[in-house]
Amino acid sequence: MSNKAILTKIFFLVFVIVLAPRGVCWASTPADSGIYDPGNLKPMDTSTSLKVGDVAPEFSLPTLSGGAVSLDQYRNKKNVVLSFVPAAWTPVCSQQWPGYNIARDLFEKLDTVVIGISVDNIPTLHAWTREMGNLWFPVASDFWPHGAVAQKYGILRSDGVSERALFVIDKKGVVRFIDVHDINKMPKLEDLIKALEKLQTN
């Protein structure tokens, strides 16, 4: 092998070795480790025709745990929060579900289950949610047909991800609260909890 070839290989090796520690560096730091920052996005890109009082569109989606989740399985049993997040490994999304994770008691007290939905595929969601700790609620993949459920709810953006949206659906399957949120911002937890509390009083 010529000196030039050896040096080329060495420089490639050095390049890899020098970059590797940076990976360790980021992985050991904060919550957004490994997070892709898409920058500031158009706050909303859709306008759902779904209204409070409408019957929630039915769906069945594969979940991380291997089965499927549908609205139907909670009919007459639990209120449901559908939490659509735009994409795995992006800044706000990577914290929204961990927030709901520690608020489990609040949701359970209000007889409510959360269903997390993203247009990502199952392997991506698996890797991503592992960084969040053990989520108590089902995480569903709306990957194929791509974004079909987001489309049904009128929140599939033109770039193929969903809006950051919350739908509260009561035990009868009726939509009782809609928050299609600015995609760049975190919805306030208390707004969602207040909407659920309203179900108890009605």
Partner: peptide
């Protein structure tokens, strides 16, 4: 010499981590 360069660059890489933090 190559080995020494690699070690120095590795340390520099770890140094960059600290700078980033």
């Amino acid at each position: 010499i190559v080995g020494a360069i690699i070690i120095v660059l590795m340390l520099a890489g770890f140094g960059l981590c600290d700078v980033a933090k």
